[in-house]
Design a protein around this nucleic acid. Structure first.
Lengths: 231, 231
DNA sequence: GCAAAAGTGTTACGTCTACACCCATGC
DNA sequence: GCATGGGTGTAGACGTAACACTTTTGC
């Protein structure tokens, strides 16, 4: 690429991925042992330096695939960490991105084979550098976001049951919700499409499956909205 | 600084400041003519490459002071722009930060002397690169934020009247609000401290001045809250 | 038949919206 | 005395929160 700037210093730019997984009612975080020489084998978020031919989101997707085999994960920018001393290995900023996925949709063995592992959110190990801060920031964001947006729309693309979605909210907020009110509010948004199929994996009776009406969601999002599912 | 990373390429990292000014009821944007050789003299947000000894926020404050004389502006991170071709001058990412200030608090001549100027938000010139996108993103963020947070707390530190604050909301949302409802909701938050002084600059009767109860605000913020001043 | 989870309605309460007039003052 | 912006109250609509029992089915 051409370079028309002569002043200014270049620095390292990394991406780090905060991937929350929702697995049988438990919220987990994806972590792996660092491969680079500095701080090798310590636990870390999945990350990489950004390459000349990719933007931050592409870099995050690439490294996530390399290290876990996970593909097509929608990640949202969290924040860029730029403190001078944040990385003792060199001056390096990191663009953190986060996502929330339903673990059952993915091959857990694949992740393991690649050297990554899932930790329960309530029992996290110490991570390198400022990665602990990133995780807490991402949790806060997730909680705030879920008050005003129906999370799961972008983050849980597959079909799901209402009790599953409620459980997701309960895990994120660490708080029991009233199932009647949750269901009522959720359905009043008119964003769910009933599939008239039942999922019997978590009860004998079975719960009806739904998917999100993605187009409707997008239209509403453009106009701004308040989708708090509780106060 | 030590460098323990051998792989990875360094790239340029810039900051850009989206400074909205609220001036006698009108929302304005701070713009200046680029000084660097590439695209010199075209209109641009105020920005700079980040230096080895400063983080993004410090870089933003530094360049803002250099170019406008404005000091002690609280800026919040908006987003990091990383597309490969976003800057035709070189591969360069930009960490955008925004703020909203009350223009009357600052010396407008000073800004002008330094070569910057204010444009009305409804009559913006074309800016270089992706700066137009940044401005639109910042406006969207400002609107969303003002639905859930009492903006002005961090952004308008000085004493103010309720009609002034209402006007700010109206300008941001391009929409008239009901003064009774606005006042009622605002006061119900219990975040204002009455100063028992009147500002007569915009009416004969004069309007009472208030300031924010910053401590109370911070406490509430930590617990998360919903402060929409209207729907 | 019983354990386990899914599904369903109503009422009380609080908040939001819409709406119109008097007040204080400078000129 | 009048024009200008500041300040006030209420009723209806709407949304939220609290609350317990029935249904379905696999075992």
């Amino acid at each position: 690429m051409t370079n028309r700037y002569d002043n200014g210093e270049k620095i390292y730019v990394a991406v780090d991925c905060i991937i929350f997984g929702f697995d049988e009612g438990v919220l987990k975080l994806l972590v792996f042992k660092r491969l680079v020489n500095y701080l090798k084998d310590e636990l870390s978020l999945i990350g990489s330096f950004i390459k000349p031919d990719e933007n931050a989101n592409e870099a995050a997707r690439r490294v996530l695939k390399e290290i876990t085999g996970l593909e097509n994960i929608f990640m949202e920018e969290l924040k860029t960490y730029t403190d001078v001393d944040r990385d003792s290995g060199a001056r390096c900023i990191s663009i953190a991105q986060y996502s929330l996925i339903r673990l059952e949709d993915y091959d857990k063995q694949l992740v393991k084979k690649h050297g990554a592992q899932w930790f329960e959110i309530n029992d996290l190990p110490k991570l390198v550098l400022d990665h602990d801060v990133m995780v807490q920031d991402a949790l806060t964001r997730l909680r705030n976001k879920s008050k005003f947006y129906p999370i799961g729309i972008e983050l849980l693309p597959k079909q799901f049951t209402i009790p599953q979605l409620q459980n997701l909210y309960e895990v994120i907020h660490q708080k029991k919700l009233d199932s009647r009110n949750f269901r009522k509010k959720l359905l009043s948004l008119n964003l769910l499409i009933a599939l008239n199929k039942k999922d019997k994996s978590s009860s004998k009776k079975g719960a009806f499956l739904y998917k999100f009406d993605y187009k409707k969601y997008k239209k509403l999002e453009e106009n701004g909205f308040n989708f708090s599912l509780f106060k």
